[in-house]
Write a protein that binds this DNA or RNA. Structure first.
Lengths: 277, 277
DNA sequence: CGCAATCTTGAATCGATTCAAAGAATGTGG
DNA sequence: CCACATTCTTTGAATCGATTCAAGATTGCG
């Protein structure tokens, strides 16, 4: 059913290795798109984007055992009440964390993109208190908890870096709380688009205020605590005001400064040091 | 203005040391109410409630430099954009994290009680992306980041315990997101009351489904993304349904099983091991 | 006692939801 | 390559939950 897509995604990862070692963007920042057949490269780049890694630390990270595995879109990666024995690093595709409630209600907690380790928290919270699923066909690298624990025990700097990553995760939750609690539906949607742009741009997966957004309006609604009907109306409004256009899975931000302004977007909470200074 | 209250609060901490070393609850669990004049005792008990501490680790924690300091209610402890050099452990009183937005809107992210380290995240996220204030007169123990970093570098087990604490923090944010996004106002308020009861009960500050709740209806509204008027109506409804009564700063849960049921409260996300098993 | 903060209630309004149904896009198999 | 099924998007109309505004009651505090 999904095999074609999955193989396509797999090849994409492998073939990227043939290109230049780094895809440089206009800002001269190294992109996170897979440029090597070894998934650990992705992790090294990710951690390097959070904090400086020493040569020794880099070697230790490269030595982590990882198993790459494709998964079809819509598939659960880990479920509430599970006790996973490994974390997953996203090499390609999007994932999301969510929880189902009574009467078919759903709350999405986060969207995750390549370079993220969306279930890192289960390293220390053994039982999953929510679920994690692939939004698109994904390529994942699974890393045993055991290996990560050994690594963090031996290298406090790496522990601090991973810890920091989970703290940024929490900061994003706080910002989403603001969106759901105190922002209008319009502001909340605009804010989400700004956030995803900054995150994707930081790993080289977006530029020129345009990116692939492989989620449905229902997903946006469940993430922001709205109904899908209302999300649709908000999207129309944003389109009519020449701010953003979402069509065929691509998001085009026509007026970035205005979008930032109306959504009161301040990237401080993402703690991208190069931005926050 | 606040001096009497503050001194009262301070004495309360000091005088508790005269009593039995541990206040035992019916469940036989050690209570977290201050039982010693040394604030490090509180930290040892807190960490011990998260994970087992070895004797060596306990000694290391006891060796942390701490400065106890009272602060009047309403006072800010740390503000957005600050770069604190220390974390604070709450010895007595309540604190909350929040953010102000345009037009006087406010979002409260969390309520904190004795034993909590509400700004632990700034150990690795140098810049505060929100503010922290004392809700009531509080007694705080300030611990320099430097000392905590040395501790976590030398003792990976303690690092993991503190890390875990910040992860539970994030899990609570997720649950609040569910409340704001997909629960009715009534359910959200009820859920908050359940959550605070479990947290307070775990540190010996609540029992018999009754506890001191020193926050205003406006605070509840800003925490749950509601208007104060609506919170008032929801409280009346809960009272009329004989579920909870909030009066004079005390919360009385008349029908705990029903409150848990209507709010769909599942304490799993609090990751209190003794509960989750 | 009197001020200030908090709580309470009613009435009007608004933002968002629900329900329903049509239209567009996407993927599948013949 | 077309027809069909499915999923996603779009729009209108009725409704509802929550907000805003405003005024009065209560509580705590100096």
């Amino acid at each position: 059913m999904y095999s074609k897509l999955v193989i396509g995604c797999f090849l994409q990862v492998l073939m990227a290795g043939r290109g230049a070692r780094f895809h440089l963007q206009s800002e001269g920042r190294a992109a996170l798109v897979p440029t090597s057949s070894h998934p650990a490269d992705m992790l090294v780049r990710k951690l390097g984007s959070i904090a400086q890694l020493s040569d020794e630390e880099r070697r230790a990270v490269m030595g982590l055992p990882m198993t790459a595995r494709p998964l079809p879109g819509g598939h659960d990666i880990a479920c509430e009440h599970d006790r996973p024995m490994q974390c997953c690093l996203i090499l390609d595709g999007w994932a999301s964390r969510y929880q189902f409630l009574a009467e078919g209600r759903r709350q999405i907690f986060s969207f995750h993109i390549p370079g993220d380790i969306p279930d890192l928290q289960c390293l220390h919270l053994r039982v999953m208190d929510h679920s994690l699923c692939a939004l698109t066909p994904v390529m994942l690298a699974f890393i045993p908890h055991e290996a990560i624990r050994d690594l963090t025990t031996g290298y406090p700097g790496i522990a601090a870096t991973l810890w920091r990553d989970t703290l940024v995760d929490g900061a994003v939750f706080r910002e989403w709380m603001v969106g759901m609690g105190r922002r209008s539906a319009c502001q909340a949607v605009a804010h989400l688009f700004c956030e995803m742009y900054v995150k994707l741009e930081a790993v080289g997966l977006a530029k020129n205020h345009r990116y692939k957004l492989p989620i449905t309006q229902v997903d946006i609604a469940d993430a922001l605590g709205l109904s899908n009907v209302h999300v649709n109306r908000v999207l129309r409004q944003l389109r009519e005001e020449n701010l953003v256009v979402l069509r065929n899975g691509w998001l085009n931000i026509s007026n970035w400064p205005e979008l930032v302004k109306i959504s009161e977007f301040d990237p401080l909470y993402l703690h991208v040091d190069r931005l926050a200074a």
